[in-house]
Amino acid sequence: MVDTRIASTYVQLLFEYLQGQGLDPVQLLGPAPGADEHFVSLPTWQRMLRRVDALEQRPALGLRIAEGVAARHFGVVGYAALACSTLAEALLRLERHHVAVYDVNPATIHEQAGCLVIEWGVERGRPGALVDETAIASLVQLARDMTGRCLPVQAVDFVNPAPADVRPYRDFFGGEVRFDRPTTRVVIAPTYLALPLRKSDPALLALLDQQAEALLARVAALPAAVDHWRRALVPLIREGRMSLAALADSQHMSARSLQRRLAEQGMSFQQLLDRTRQHLAEGHLREPSLDLAEIALLLGYSEQSAFTRAFKAWTGESPAQWRKLRQSEASS
């Protein structure tokens, strides 16, 4: 396969599974990835899964691992998904940012016969049953965790050959499970797409907002009204609702009134948004534990490339260049 990788939080999930089985994951697999290691290579992940599978010699390892999944195992992407109002919105957000978690084969979402279909091809190779089953089962389990409902899927397709016993798969997914298919797919019935999320980690979402507000507190002071609006933008940016109307609604005023009040302070909404994003970006870039893709997501960008273009327009440097220069300055 070409150079592919998965988020190191998947390794954390595997370590937690082993600990739950009374096993020492470090002794079995070696040290966990460091705090600054955002990804592990696909071959590394494959070796880990094969080692555990050979030890346990039980079917459906990926399904058992996935049972412990939560938003934190999807990193910032998982937390951002919790900010969505419905399961459909959360799944769309996960699809847009899947490379920050599972950079193997590209994912697409489309509608078919009224159902939502999430599909992975084999353009970049076939990672194998253990990898595929862990990833798909984790996604389904995350949807259940976010909604608080043990929702069955309409159907699941895998590109890999059928295992000797398919019953554990039917029991886990609750719908039709097929193997030896041309693509890997998860089909979700429309009944479940409008389910509200139970926001199972509100403390984590609040923490993200508090961290963002702390970053803003370090930059130049602004008039009280403008600073208030800037802080109100923080959750809207994270949720991807960056419009004058959304900010005005959060302040219980009309868009026209907010626009007029911003003008009185010598500022447009776009200037406020750009400056807020820039200040947040610079603060996040000083935090080595955040990957550029995660920072782009926290700033409401659907793609890292869009964040890079915007940051270069603000500062004249790419985010990677800006980070490297500041790190050099800090160490000198």
Rank of each mutant, 00 (worst) to 15 (best):
D209S: 13
Q211D: 12
A212T: 06
E213I: 13
L215Q: 13
L215E: 10
L216R: 07
R218A: 15
V219P: 05
V219S: 11
A220V: 12
A220F: 10
A221S: 12
A221G: 02
L222P: 04
L222E: 14
P223A: 13
A224N: 09
A224H: 08
V226F: 06
V226P: 01
D227W: 02
D227I: 07
H228E: 05
H228V: 00
R230D: 03
A232F: 07
L233R: 03
L233M: 14
L236Q: 08
L236F: 06
I237R: 04
R238V: 07
E239Q: 15
E239W: 03
E239Y: 05
M242R: 14
M242A: 14
S243T: 15
A245Q: 15
A246C: 11
L247R: 00
L247V: 01
L247G: 00
L247H: 03
A248Q: 09
D249I: 05
Q251G: 01
Q251K: 08
H252K: 10
H252F: 13
S254K: 10
S254L: 12
A255C: 03
R256V: 11
R256W: 01
R256G: 05
R256Y: 02
R260D: 13
R261I: 02
L262S: 07
L262T: 05
E264T: 02
E264L: 10
E264R: 11
Q265A: 12
Q265F: 05
Q265M: 04
M267E: 03
M267L: 13
M267T: 10
S268Q: 06
F269G: 02
L272R: 01
L272V: 01
D274Q: 14
D274C: 07
R275P: 01
R275H: 07
T276A: 09
T276F: 05
H279P: 00
L280H: 04
A281H: 07
A281L: 11
G283N: 08
E287N: 09
S289N: 01
S289K: 06
L290C: 02
L290F: 15
D291H: 15
D291P: 03
L292A: 03
A293W: 02
A293C: 06
I295A: 06
I295N: 05
A296Y: 04
A296M: 02
L298H: 00
L299M: 08
L299N: 00
S302P: 00
S302Q: 14
E303D: 09
E303K: 14
E303L: 11
E303M: 13
E303F: 09
F307M: 12
F307D: 00
T308M: 05
R309Q: 13
R309V: 14
F311M: 13
F311E: 02
A313Q: 15
A313G: 10
W314G: 05
W314Y: 14
W314C: 11
T315W: 10
T315H: 10
T315C: 10
T315S: 11
G316Y: 04
S318D: 09
P319A: 11
K324I: 07
